[in-house]
């Protein structure tokens, strides 16, 4: 078992990244995943424990311009209560609304939700339909280096991402959604609160004259990672939103969702929920 030899809580990003260069830092943000995972032994600490919550500016939310930027340590409740985000990206706020409990939402960060890389991470499907990218930073060549990865290329398998151990997720960025963009989110669990999603579905699209374009559909808990449902998207792209296109989209879910049986639900039930949710969100949009 690894002994933690150093604890750091830097106020500057460069100091945090310098502490990460050897890839031996365990990043601590809200701790709502890290604490239970390390207590149960599912996850081991490394030599350094690095608290990133004191880094100045890392929780800032900038939703005023053409690019929306959400700092990694912003909490779920900060997103939920952000008036500008509610105005331009209500799908994200809707997901935040149904996230865990109020106490967890005060502690949990959006960056932690993404880096934990659970197929059930609730902030991920809405960010996928907003076309978000993540910004990764590291210390290389005596300077801060950053790269951007589209969120749909970030996840590899449960708990695994393309992020290197020396990299910190610093922000989530996406283009300000167009005025005719609509977004919807559905999640299900046995209880409306404090539930890890059995299945979640998000839809984002531009709607003009009853036709959908730039369609993005994302799903959680139907595969080893959250995913973009490309077949469902293809069934809807450029189509008038009517009974025929909705039926085609529902049928296409079988191509994208490859759920498994586990303690929370059977594969059959998950497949069923995905069909119901896709139909519901499309009917919602049609009704508007």
């Amino acid at each position: 078992m690894q002994e933690i030899t150093t604890y750091l809580a830097p106020s500057r990003l460069d100091a945090a990244l310098q502490a990460m260069v050897d890839g031996d830092a365990t990043v601590l943000c809200g701790g709502t995943d890290l604490a239970p995972q390390t207590e149960s032994g599912a996850r081991l600490y490394t030599a350094k424990l690095l608290n990133i919550r004191r880094i100045e500016g890392l929780g800032d939310i900038d939703a005023g311009g053409d690019k929306v930027r959400i700092g990694a340590v912003a909490t779920i409740n900060e997103i939920r209560r952000h008036p500008a985000l509610a105005a331009i990206a209500p799908v994200l706020v809707e997901a935040a609304e149904h996230f865990a409990s109020d106490q967890i939402r005060n502690a949990a960060s959006v960056g932690g939700n993404i880096c934990n890389a659970s197929p059930a991470g609730d902030m991920i499907p809405p960010l996928l339909v907003l076309g978000a990218s993540v910004e990764l930073a590291c210390w290389r060549g005596d300077a801060v280096q950053t790269r951007r990865i589209p969120l749909d290329q970030f996840f590899l398998s449960p708990g695994k991402t393309v992020k290197l151990p020396e990299e910190l997720l610093t922000a989530i960025v996406f283009d300000r959604p167009a005025a005719d963009f609509v977004g919807k989110f559905r999640k299900s669990g046995p209880r409306p609160a404090l539930e890890i999603s059995t299945v979640s579905v998000a839809l984002g699209a531009r709607v003009a004259d009853g036709r959908l374009s730039d369609v993005r559909v994302a799903m959680g808990s139907v595969a080893p990672t959250p995913l973009r449902a490309r077949h469902v998207e293809a069934a809807l792209e450029g189509k008038p939103l009517d009974a025929a296109s909705i039926a085609a989209a529902v049928t296409a879910t079988a191509e994208d969702a490859k759920p498994i049986d586990d303690v929370r639900a059977s594969a059959w039930y998950r497949g069923h929920l995905v069909r119901v949710f896709v139909e519901e969100v499309l009917n919602d949009v049609r009704g508007n």
Binding site: T32, A35, Q103
Partner: peptide, 23 residues
Amino acid sequence: GEGECGACTIRIDGKTVNSCLMY
């Protein structure tokens, strides 16, 4: 001890959190 029940709720800088999860 795992964030599910709220018995350990405290305020930190004015906001409530589960103290069993907070380092």
